[in-house]
Design a protein around this nucleic acid. Structure first.
Lengths: 342, 342
DNA sequence: GTTAGCACTCGTGCTTGTTGAGTGCTAACA
DNA sequence: TGTTAGCACTCAACAAGCACGAGTGCTAAC
């Protein structure tokens, strides 16, 4: 059995309706719907076929039908027609984004807010991979006896800091000149290339080797860790509770638990290929707790080499249409804002 | 009618039981309980009195009784006997806190995690008021044509950054020397005293006045804003859903919505007096959405002048005992860790 | 002052019946 | 041969009725 034009039409109508209502949809509903000129009986026959083909599920005999994950896959790949955002909406989102643009952390944070507000789902934004960011400036600041704070400013104005210990008796002036030297040597190098640069520094070091060694270690540790918790920002976690899928408190709790584990989130948002938009439906995203969620992601650029990810997590019956439009727009907007300090 | 010894005893037993079970407690339960040697009938008479006095509520005729907010108030003020944490527990919490102590943001974040794990409620930590922190270092880093990133390192290693615009043609070296000058002039001054210092600088400025003016403005704006979103850290938001009080999704959603508004949280956690532990029960915390929540807060010190707040939000029938012990301990631990880079 | 006894209340959980949305099948129709 | 009307059937959801039991208040006896 194959999918003909009419089956596509009916399947699409069913999915569209289910996305709106979250209720199993019956043959009468589809029959009434404009654009499909068949009687309920005909629709029923087609629905029966679609069920056999694995595109529809039936919760129980006397209920309507519900799209399967396979149906959503077909939907996003072929059936869905993209909608445009209104200019008004684009403007509003853009303005919200710029309102806090004075602080970089703030830009990402408000982007997450805009995303979750615009879609009514939960949004997640992952900051660019540390290793790909370029160092603009390194500064060691004395904070205590034998301790200094190392501040690294990268492009996109992202600031990373870490406490390192310094040799006995090293004073502020000395740290200052080491900072100057480090900045000079490391400027415009990506963080992940720092090991090499350091090796070179250590070979012909006039300065304290132990200090440089530890500084290198700290940087590498940060790189390995893949960034700390603040690198994943979640927006509108409570939005998900609006949907009947999560009217069960246990489900809601499991969902929120996933959001609390930034590591899991970072992994979930890791993207496969280079395509603009990636969609994972239900079990496609591996995590059992998110079996009835879909994750849609896009990416944004910072400078020429670094990319971060922005995404939406919602029920599998999410409004893919709108989510994709919003993500595409915000991906571009975020890239613009974050690349302006190149 | 007055509260005699026996009424205290019974009320305490009722509250203890209700904190454990969240079920209306009946006279039989209390009678069986060790320590109270009276028959259910006697207990009933006393309970009737307690209800009349406003310490107990009755959900409906044939149910047991539930402590009122007035009862909780009495409980935390007089009835409650403090319990000690085991050494084992203290150690575990302390270790968790230190595990991430290399990054300051990380310390506060993991403290929030420790708090919510130890209590099974939701924790909130507010970073110290910016104005009271002391400047250790100011650094201007060029990020784009006519734009620089200003990084301010304060004691406790807290780093604040903001983008400012700089005059045409100002190069890295020039910014470097301005940074040096600013650091020298501002070092060890609290942020809120910066206005004065700047006024002085502006009076006999050799350097560009417009730059200094804007720098001052940025600092002041940050001060006025009372810190940005990252200054409030929430731990274990999903914990609250464990409790039957929040088995209603709508209630849960409202609760989570409150947690999303960092401004509201900051206000909620603002503390009245200087006492070590502050407890607000139900409506005492003003916010209708949190009418059946209690908020317990303690404070921590950073250096000599700055204080931040750490708190627990839980149902009014929370385990005040334990919460207070944990908060006291963590307040001290956090102060120790954050004051070590003085 | 304390307690046993008893009638009374009322939420909870179970069973049963009803309703209605939806299905599958069959037979008639174009 | 594809489409549709008709009809019997299914089953979740809802409501009504009922028994149960936890809990109360009151009274009278100890």
């Amino acid at each position: 059995m194959q999918l003909d034009e009419r089956k596509y039409l009916i399947l699409q109508a069913i999915i569209d309706d289910y996305i709106m209502t979250a209720m199993p949809v019956g043959s009468r509903t589809i029959s009434r719907k404009s654009g499909v000129g068949y009687s309920p009986a005909t629709i029923r026959n087609e629905m029966s076929d679609l069920e056999e083909l694995g595109y529809l599920d039936q919760p129980h005999t006397s209920a309507g039908r519900v799209p399967s994950n396979k149906a959503y896959r077909l939907y996003v790949d072929h059936l869905m027609k993209t909608v445009k955002l209104t200019n008004d909406e684009r403007e509003r989102m853009h303005d919200h984004l710029l309102a806090k643009s004075k602080q970089v952390e703030g830009v990402i944070r408000s982007a997450a807010g805009v995303l979750s507000d615009a879609t009514k789902y939960t949004s997640v934004i992952v900051a660019p991979k540390l290793g790909t960011l370029r160092i603009k400036h390194v500064q060691l600041v004395p904070v205590a006896e034998r301790m200094a704070l190392m501040v690294i400013v990268t492009n996109a104005g992202i600031v990373k800091d870490a406490v390192i210990s310094v040799p006995e008796g090293m004073d502020a002036d000395e740290l200052y000149s080491i900072s100057r030297m480090l900045t000079e040597k490391l400027a415009d190098k990506p963080l992940e290339a720092v090991r090499q640069a350091f090796a070179e520094l250590l070979r012909n070091a006039e300065y304290n080797r132990r200090l440089l060694g530890e500084t290198l270690q700290v940087i590498e540790k940060r790189l390995e860790a893949g960034g700390d918790a603040s690198d994943v920002i979640v927006g509108g976690p409570a939005n998900m509770l609006e949907y009947p899928e999560y009217s069960d408190v246990n489900k809601a709790r499991n969902f929120l638990a996933v959001l609390e584990s930034r590591d899991t989130l970072r992994q979930l948002l890791s993207r496969d290929g280079g395509m603009e938009i990636s969609i994972r439906i239900g079990p496609e995203n591996q995590l059992p707790a998110l079996n009835d969620c879909s994750i849609v992601t896009a990416s944004y650029r910072v400078g020429d080499h670094s990319t971060g990810t922005l995404g939406i997590i919602g029920p599998t019956r999410m409004n893919y249409n709108r989510v994709i439009s919003v993500l595409e727009f915000m991906g571009r907007a975020l890239s613009d804002v974050l690349s302006q300090y190149k």
